[in-house]
């Protein structure tokens, strides 16, 4: 048999043997997405709350393969009392089709929201809530964190 034909046969056999894995996507997806489920604080890293240029800035970074629901995110001022935040500039996020919940808006890399206050009074302490999932793996219960606001000059 021609050695070239033999080599071709081997390559073909390798390709065929890998086909089931390619077909279900397991070879094409990042290993960390399919093989490792992160604790919630690694899946979603809450950034320090900042007061800068008269704005409260809240950020949460989502790990690769994880996403945050837009409508599950919220911020409440704990101190000073009675300080109410204005509307945020939170982006619309991207559309995610969920088999059970239909079209939902999510953030996959970073959720970033800026708020103004009526009298430009800086909040000192805020409570944020958020919720998200690791795509096709797990979902995390609603989370709440209390953050002390740092002033950045």
């Amino acid at each position: 048999m021609n050695p070239r034909i033999g080599s071709l046969l081997i390559v073909a056999a390798l390709a065929l043997s890998a086909q089931p894995a390619i077909a279900d996507g397991s070879l094409l997806q990042p290993r960390e997405q399919s093989d490792r489920i992160l604790p919630v604080d690694e899946a979603f890293r809450v950034q320090p709350a900042l007061w800068q240029n008269g704005q409260l800035i809240i950020g949460i970074d989502a790990a690769p393969g994880c996403y945050l629901y837009r409508d599950k995110f919220g911020v409440v001022v704990l101190a000073p009392a009675n300080l109410v935040l204005g509307k945020s500039d939170l982006r619309a996020g991207e559309t995610h089709h969920d088999e059970h919940f239909g079209e939902v808006r999510v953030f996959r890399d970073r959720l970033l929201a800026r708020y103004k206050t009526p009298s430009a009074t800086p909040p000192q302490k805020v409570r944020i809530r958020y919720q998200g999932c690791a795509e096709n793996l797990v979902c995390y219960p609603p989370q709440e964190r209390v953050l002390t606001v740092e002033t950045v000059r």
Binding site: I10, A13, L14, L16, S17, P20, A21, S26, S34
Partner: peptide, 17 residues
């Protein structure tokens, strides 16, 4: 060699899946 490659490929698939 084809058989070995096929078994190896399947083992890798099972491991990843």
């Amino acid at each position: 060699l084809c058989v070995v490659a096929a078994i190896g490929g399947f083992a890798v698939y099972r491991y990843l899946a």
